[in-house]
Design a protein around this nucleic acid. Structure first.
Length: 822
RNA sequence: GCGGAUGUGGUGGAAUUGGUAGACACGCUAGCCUUAGGAGCUAGUGCCGCAAGGCGUGAAGGUUCAAGUCCUUUCAUCCGCACCA
């Protein structure tokens, strides 16, 4: 009873560094990629080393670490890789802020992370570490550009793009948040503007259909799958040509509702549509120019904020091809140049936005779909119905009318069936220094020449001044020694491309490089990659769309060119929630107001308690609400486990009767089953709860049974050490050692469920009368229905409720309950 | 606006196919113990009620012997996307 007084207290500060050192020295986490064992490849989304290790990192990487450790303990060859997504704007901005070069800042940041990763107790394989900003890596990022080009998937084009004056770079749409640059979204930061920029594109749209079709089969968080589908945004429809009256020009629109063509009473072009200046009548030009200018300043947020529709009549009409009617042509900011053809036929009777515009500009509204007498409910809700006021098409269903209208116009070359995608090609150009140089030489005679594989890598020169050049080009424009080269085709003096690649390119193929990080002659060895791909488990709390889509695109490309068998990169993807503050607000990286994981560890709670709390706090998909009492609570649990094992070790040998052993083994095997199933199913919180419950029950049992050295008690504590291993690996190894083992628990040690110990002799039968619980009876497991009902009715308390009444119905659920209806 | 979730004690959250609502933990209360600690141990802790009992999973209906779970309506919060033609 008082053993604990002499016992060694649980001291993570002592055992955690000890095991971290042993793990390092014995390379337990070094994966043998050629192993014959079943393989498991798991990791969290690539770390961007832009500052400190925060609690979000702790959350993300512990999740994949738990999965990885679980499989490793189960006997898998488990590979939990580690690397740095070190190129990119945040790193460059950080370096500017610190007044050092990005190379130097990485040289400082990465070792700091390395140390902290080890203190978190993650089972990272440091032998295969990769860094995207090293030439050994980005040579192959450039190689992808070359290969993409070879396969016709690269082109150069000018586009209106979001432009951040602070970053001096183009922003992707997804990088514009609330009208501001994603990295400069503070109160004082300016709203970004649009600027026409020449840039390089990857033709991801060519893969749109297959990327879409493959989504359903993925074992991914459903909301992420949906986001993928919405991002691709496939829609079926038609392109219809409208001649401009008194001009040779034609306006092409995309519509999903060609059946409403008779209701098109005006047209709208996006303000930056190429035809606007061509067709506007001279008297309207000033007004149009002013509107274009005003729109360019506006953000999409501002455009949407105003419910009132604005626009300008161009002074010309277009001819509706279906009925020859002249309809006015406008520009309006509610039409976007980035979608479809950047022009619409407006049908105010059947589109809310068109309707608002028509009302504001006093344009006729013609109903052409009668949805009143719909036969199908589905049609009714989708706005479909029977064509009216549509000439020869009257009476047809919307679907048939649309089809016939397109067919008829197609015969006159005025329409064509068309599938449209919301997804646009991937702009990979960045006018930034800190990225992989795009492997192109711009020759005055030959134009842009893409380099050959043997001319790679194009090494990024180290610059002292790496701020953007200010002319829209990157700092590389100033590195004359590097910039000036000879054309590989004609040998004349030429300049290198000064754009660098989007970091999303770096992070879209790293999972394969993890499998062959030192390969000098190939991007990776396909034989090895095919053994390990797709990644078994991938998780993160960000980048639900772009990164995952790009990774899928690149992987699919590799598969097409014969580098990989499987076209999908991630078999399972868990989109985990974030760690948020107690008041429900987000921890801000910029404010740095989150709890510091290392501080918590150093305080004496240890990494095991931190990890256990994070995994216990909530289901992974929900994310954890940070509770300052949480880590102490987890520490308390680990202490209890520690103490009972200590007590066991110091106690003398005891004998246990069979029924006593069974009590212990029931607890252990029940917990083993629960923890095994729950980790498999990513329900870490209930897995940990099961461990806690088992420990609590063993504490109770130790007071009622002989407690001390005995194989059954030993089995119980060994099992618990193994079960907590994925969450609290240090204490697991320490307990394992204290229980007499000389090997590490980390590989091939996971308890097996023996179902014979799950059998119980008695169970609790719940007795309800009219659905209300009136008694709980302990009965033998093999009780018959008759016996159970008899016992239920015989209970004195139940008697009070059924006495003198007619039992009209008897419900019996074997092993669970009886419900008597009176 | 559209799409997706989520609503359960003071708090985070548990609850196979509908079958004991509140596991596990935090917090709180009381007691014990002591090397007085960031301890540890034991008991209690949904609400009302002395009790018997009643009420209780955002709200309102419904199906059922039985509903957190299924159906209908509705409210709130959060997250995506955003004038997508």
């Amino acid at each position: 009873m008082v053993y604990w007084i002499d016992m060694k207290r649980y001291n993570p500060k002592e055992i955690e560094p000890k095991w971290q050192q042993i793990w390092r020295e014995t390379n337990v986490y070094t994966a043998n990629l050629a192993s014959d064992k079943p393989k498991y490849f798991a990791f969290g989304m690539f770390n961007y080393p832009s500052g400190n290790l925060h609690v979000g990192h702790a959350m993300n990487f512990t999740i994949s670490d738990v999965k990885s450790r679980f499989k490793r303990q189960q006997g898998f060859e488990s590979y939990h890789p580690v690397g740095w997504d070190s190129f990119g704007l945040p790193a460059e901005n950080y370096a500017i802020k610190k007044g050092i070069s990005p190379q130097e800042s990485m040289a400082q940041l990465i070792p700091d992370y390395q140390e902290k990763y080890q203190k978190m107790g993650w089972s990272d394989d440091w032998e295969k570490e990769i860094t995207t900003s090293e030439p050994e890596y980005y040579k192959w990022t450039q190689w992808i550009f070359v290969k993409m080009h070879e396969h016709g998937l690269v082109y150069q084009d000018s586009r209106w793009q979001w432009w951040c004056t602070k970053c001096q770079t183009v922003l992707a749409n997804e990088q514009v948040i609330d009208g501001k640059c994603w990295r400069h979204d503070g109160k004082d930061d300016l709203i970004v503007e649009k600027k026409e920029v020449k840039q390089w594109f990857f033709k991801i749209t060519e893969y749109a259909d297959e990327l879409l079709e493959a989504v359903d089969a993925l074992d991914w968080t459903e909301s992420v799958k949906l986001a993928q589908k919405n991002w691709i945004g496939k829609s079926q429809g038609a392109e219809v040509m409208f001649e401009v009256a008194g001009s040779k020009e034609t306006i092409t629109v995309f519509t999903t509702r060609p059946d409403t063509l008779f209701g098109a009473t005006f047209m709208v072009l996006a303000p930056d549509h190429a035809l606007v200046r061509e067709i506007t009548t001279p008297d309207k030009l000033d007004e149009v120019e002013a509107y274009i200018k005003a729109t360019a300043k506006k953000t999409e947020v501002e455009r949407q904020a105003s419910k009132e529709k604005t626009g300008v009549y161009l002074g010309v009409n277009a001819i509706n091809p279906i009925n020859g009617q002249e309809i006015p042509v406008y520009i309006a900011d509610y039409v976007l140049s980035g979608y479809g053809t950047g022009a619409i036929m407006a049908v105010p009777a059947h589109d809310e936005r068109d309707n608002a515009f028509a009302k504001a500009f006093d344009i006729p509204i013609v109903q052409v779909v009668d949805s009143a007498d719909n036969s199908s409910v589905q049609d009714f809700y989708s706005g479909y119905g029977i064509a009216v006021h549509s000439g020869p098409y009257d009476g047809l269903t919307s679907k048939k009318a649309g089809q016939k209208i397109v067919d008829d116009l197609a015969n006159k070359h005025l329409a064509i069936q068309k599938t449209n995608y919301k997804m646009r090609d991937w702009s990979i150009s960045r006018q930034r220094y800190w990225g992989a140089p795009i492997p192109v030489v711009n020759c005055p005679d030959c134009g842009p020449v893409v380099l050959k594989e043997d001319q790679l890598p194009v090494v990024l020169p180290e610059l002292t001044d790496f701020k953007p050049s200010g002319d829209g080009r990157s700092a590389l424009a100033r590195a004359k020694d590097w910039l000036i080269t000879t054309c590989p085709d004609c040998g004349k003096t030429a300049e290198r491309e000064t754009d660098t690649m989007d970091t999303y390119v770096d992070s879209s193929w790293y999972m394969m490089r993890y499998l062959d990080p030192q390969n000098q002659s190939q991007i990776f060895d396909s034989n090895v990659a095919n053994q390990w791909m797709p990644v078994n488990f991938y998780n993160g709390g960000d980048h639900a769309t772009a990164h995952l889509l790009y990774a899928r695109f690149i992987t699919r490309f590799f598969s097409k060119i014969g580098l990989l068998d499987n076209p999908e990169p991630f078999k399972q993807m868990l989109y985990n929630g974030k760690v948020i503050a107690k008041d429900g607000t987000a921890f801000s990286k910029t404010l740095g107001n989150g709890p510091d994981p290392l501080e918590i560890i150093e305080q004496g709670y240890g990494a095991d308690a931190l990890r256990t709390y994070l995994m216990f706090a909530a289901p992974l998909e929900l994310g954890a609400r940070w509770d300052p009492q949480g880590v102490p609570g987890a520490h308390r649990f680990l202490s209890r486990l520690w103490n009972i094992v200590q007590e066991y070790i110091e106690a003398p040998a005891v004998e246990l009767a069979t029924d006593q052993s069974k009590k212990i083994l029931l607890i252990v095997h029940k917990a083993t089953k629960k923890v095994t199933d729950d980790i498999e199913g990513n329900r870490f919180n209930t897995a940990i709860a099961a461990c806690m419950e088992a420990v609590n029950k063993l504490y109770l049992l130790k007071t009622e049974l002989p407690f001390g050295q005995n194989n059954v008690w030993l089995e119980a504590f060994e099992a618990l050490a193994m079960l907590v291993g994925p969450f609290a690996p240090h204490i697991a190894d320490e307990l394992w050692q204290l229980l007499g083992h000389s090997d590490s628990i980390q590989r091939d040690h996971w308890p097996i469920v023996d179902t014979q110990y799950l059998q119980v002799d008695t169970f609790t039968l719940v007795v309800q009368v009219n659905g209300k619980v009136r008694a709980q009876l302990s009965l033998a497991s093999d009780v018959t229905k008759e016996q159970a009902l008899e016992a239920a009715k015989a209970d004195s308390h139940v008697q009070e409720f059924i006495n003198g009444k007619d039992v009209k119905k008897e419900i019996y659920i074997p092993g669970k309950l009886v419900n008597l209806v009176v």
